[in-house]
């Protein structure tokens, strides 16, 4: 079973990655013919691009913001869903939906919820007298830079939350029941059990969830592409979406490839640090 898996990984990940490396050191454009090696010229060029530097900054905000929300939200959800209650199966099923549904469908749904003209949220807000909103200028969820970034973070969090919750639920079920029970007999309350038993014991699995979350977020462009296409004026532009806009829509394949390769060392460093931290925090 090893070889089919290896062939699959090479074909789906290895080959495009190798192609991106080859492109990034060339002057290849979408309509050009032939290949010319240009060394580090593309990397130097993008470092002079204000749009790229903005996208790099936005990528960090997008990743850090959504991961904080995912970690807090999934920990709370996992703790809640671990308890036995009526309808737990149904709640767990519903909670999984954002993860199992195609991301494009979910994001399009959110686009309409946050739409400038037909937003259901704004429809309600404008009709609630206490808010005194201008009917022609309700909150523009995707039109104000700060609100737009918050919107893409929230939608991405909505998407990743189930995945992280499932990982944490698995981690919680692996904690020996005697430890929290013993602590409870010794008089430990909810918060003490959470911060001194559950979370420390969950730390290795939390690290894994965080690592996956960072990789999924830093390399994701679907939510940004569908909700804002990087706007308003590049304030939600992230590195993967900029690579797509530059390489495919703009036609500069070599620069698009160079932009996308910028993510690799960052993600390798993050993965190394996270795995190292996970090893150190293993409960022995």
């Amino acid at each position: 079973m090893f070889y089919p898996a290896m062939i699959y990984v090479l074909a789906v990940i290895g080959l495009p990655f190798a192609l991106a490396v080859v492109y990034a050191f060339s002057d290849i454009k979408v309509g050009s013919v032939g290949y010319h090696f240009v060394g580090l010229q593309n990397f130097k060029s993008i470092l002079h691009s204000a749009t790229f530097l903005r996208a790099l900054y936005d990528s960090f905000i997008f990743t850090v913001g959504s991961q904080i929300l995912v970690l807090v939200g999934s920990t709370l959800l996992a703790l809640a869903l671990e308890k036995k209650f009526r309808g737990r199966g149904l709640v767990r099923f519903l909670m999984l939906l954002p993860w199992v549904a195609p991301v494009s469908i979910g994001a399009i749904g959110w686009k309409w919820i946050l739409d400038s003209l037909y937003s259901v949220i704004n429809w309600v807000l404008v009709r609630v007298p206490i808010f005194h909103l201008d009917k022609f200028n309700p909150p523009q969820w995707l039109g104000e830079p700060a609100l737009a970034m918050a919107s893409v973070i929230v939608v991405h969090t909505w998407r990743l939350l189930p995945f992280s919750t499932v990982i944490l639920l698995a981690g919680l079920s692996a904690i020996p029941k005697e430890i929290p029970e013993a602590a409870e007999i010794d008089g430990a309350g909810f918060w003490r059990k959470m911060f001194q038993i559950n979370i420390p014991m969950l730390l290795p699995i939390l690290n894994v969830a965080l690592l996956f979350g960072i990789v999924f977020t830093f390399t994701d462009m679907t939510v940004v592409y569908i909700l804002t296409r990087g706007g308003p004026y590049d304030t939600t532009q992230v590195v993967p979406s900029l690579a797509f806009f530059t390489g495919v829509l703009g036609g500069d394949l070599s620069e698009g490839a160079a932009i996308s390769l910028f993510m690799v060392p960052i993600l390798v460093i993050v993965a190394y640090l996270m795995l190292r931290a996970a090893n150190r925090s293993e409960v022995t």
Binding site: D115, S116, L117, Y118, F136, N137, Q140, L142, G143, E144, A148, T228, R229, G231, P232, Y233
Partner: peptide
């Protein structure tokens, strides 16, 4: 104008 003009796609002004 209002900030909605920053969110538009090519059909948004038709709808508005």
């Amino acid at each position: 104008e209002t900030p909605e003009v920053f969110t538009w796609d090519p059909s948004s002004n038709n709808r508005a």
